[in-house]
Write a protein that binds this DNA or RNA. Structure first.
Lengths: 196, 196
DNA sequence: TTACAAAACTAACGCTTATTCGTTTTTAAT
DNA sequence: ATTAAAAACGAATAAGCGTTAGTTTTGTAA
């Protein structure tokens, strides 16, 4: 008989969730079976149900962990008394760090949330919308302060979000570039453009 | 008895593929059943197999249709005798148009390609890599010509690609903004930045 | 009208799915 | 060593999956 062995001091539920995130990212939520997850952990599928309620619950844990992390970060940031563009820079850098550190979970939250069941689906989308509107308000403030170009604030926001959410590309190129260069390039490009 | 009725002069296979793209986008490839697709078309599941070989083939049709469209466009563009930044602008605008016109197919090609079977999976990824390297070369040329800032060319490329691939966000905001403003904002932001 | 091909149908196949059940093993505290 | 809880197991369930086979209906052209 094998055992579910959590690393460090995380709970077994967390341990299973991280394993699930890895598989959900690689194969997608629907294409990942509980049996595969069990094999990956080294246990029988039925044993998992001593620790979790359902496959769906695993997706919930992953998605809301990520959503909360981002919401918390932007809430903290709002307290700071710094300029809008500095805040944007901090947000971009946070996205980069998060994506590189919790790759599997962030990827799954970004790509597999549609498989959440109600009421979690609505809940998740609300949190996302909240995050987006905080960012939009930030940009609008920048425009009114004349530190940001007078362009459509929603488009500006979604372009930034799309760019940082696309950082999953970078897992495969990780070795060829260091994080500081990655951050510098993206911040520069998104804030000041690529044309000289 | 119902019938598969293709619109315009497209084949029944194309008609089924478009329907499939719609469902694959909404629910994901794995979570979409052939029976659901059949209901959506108004026919029995088994009837579909008079026109297509397999569920997997539908995904192939969708992914390679999109991949070819993008490869063709960048090949055409390479002939043009215009500056690097003008080419980049044209590419960004093409992505925007494609995403708005063939939303379902482009979305599926971007998000569900991992469910392609070999050898199609490798094939698809090769085509994507080819497209990306053409773009990277373009940017490198711009840097050597000093029209583009001396930043990491790969990062610059993937940031642009991520931003335009993220245009799926815009399906839900379609009504609130016109395409020309969307294009202008994105081109300006990606090329010249958002800071005044 | 007859004949043939295209495309629909119903029924079923074998397989996989998430999950549950009852039981046994392991772990940890007394 | 005894006991109770935690966590593993194997087997089973009902539902759903992609796909196939055989048959019937439909559309088309002679």
């Amino acid at each position: 008989m094998s055992k579910i062995i959590p690393v460090h001091n995380e709970s077994k539920k967390e341990s299973i969730s991280k394993n699930a995130a890895k598989l959900f990212r690689k194969k997608g939520f629907s294409a990942t079976s509980m049996r595969e997850l069990a094999v990956d952990i080294g246990v029988e599928a039925s044993s998992l149900y001593n620790h979790i309620g359902s496959k769906s619950e695993l997706l919930q844990i992953i998605c809301f962990k990520v959503a909360n992390d981002f919401i918390n970060q932007i809430n903290e940031l709002e307290q700071f008394e710094i300029g809008v563009t500095s805040k944007l820079e901090k947000i971009i850098r946070f996205h980069i760090h998060k994506m590189l550190e919790d790759y599997d979970m962030v990827y799954v939250a970004n790509h597999e949330w549609k498989h959440l069941q109600e009421p979690f689906l609505k809940n998740f989308l609300n949190q996302r919308k909240l995050y987006e509107s905080k960012l939009i308000e930030m940009i609008k403030l920048g425009i009114s302060e004349k530190s940001i170009k007078k362009l459509n604030p929603e488009v500006l926001t979604f372009t930034i979000l799309s760019a940082v959410r696309g950082l999953e590309f970078w897992q495969q190129h990780k070795k060829n570039i260091d994080i500081e260069e990655l951050e510098k390039t993206m911040v520069t490009q998104l804030l000041t453009g690529l044309i000289k």
